[in-house]
């Protein structure tokens, strides 16, 4: 009886102990956590959409989710690529994406050149790059775009 009581007491004390995990320096992680849940579904409405969404999901899973939510623009470059191809054609969409990639890689100050989206990113919609002056929309740099 005494042994059982002793064992119960000992088990309680042992399970209460948590300090065998050594405290150590934590590695700092500067990765920006994703603010939104990305959809990883494939759009199977057509072969082209399937390939496009497949490429986007592959990029998202293999590169973007690992690298972090770093794109300063809204929509992000991968979303911009998909939207531009859907709204125009593969050739024009690719050129739009090439231009967007170049602007994203711009090392110089560019905050003044784009309006700010309410998500905190720079607002850079696809319809401003269709080469159709009637569809280009200018946003005041002083206001936040919703």
């Amino acid at each position: 009886m005494k042994i059982i009581l002793f064992f119960i007491l000992y088990a309680g004390i042992v399970s209460a102990q948590t300090d065998w995990i050594k405290w150590g320096k934590a590695d700092v992680d500067y990765e920006i956590s994703s603010q939104h849940q990305r959809s990883h579904s494939i759009d199977d409405s057509s072969i082209g959409s399937s390939i496009l969404s497949g490429l986007q999901v592959s990029y998202a899973v293999l590169i973007s989710d690992v690298d972090g939510d770093n794109c300063p623009f809204y929509p992000t470059c991968s979303s911009f690529f998909v939207r531009s191809i859907k709204e125009t054609n593969i050739f024009q969409g690719t050129l739009m994406f090439a231009d967007r990639f170049t602007r994203d890689s711009n090392l110089f100050k560019r905050r003044d050149h784009y309006p700010v989206h309410y998500s905190g990113r720079l607002y850079d919609p696809t319809y401003n790059y269709y080469l159709d002056q009637n569809k280009v929309k200018f946003y005041s740099r002083k206001k936040i775009v919703e």
Partner: peptide, 24 residues
């Protein structure tokens, strides 16, 4: 790829500039 994007983007950039003139 980058050359084509640069030519296309230049034209688009000028259109954005013209739009800013209209609205500024």
């Amino acid at each position: 790829f980058f050359y084509g994007g640069n030519v296309y983007g230049s034209a688009a950039a000028v259109q954005n500039y013209n739009a800013s003139l209209l609205n500024s």
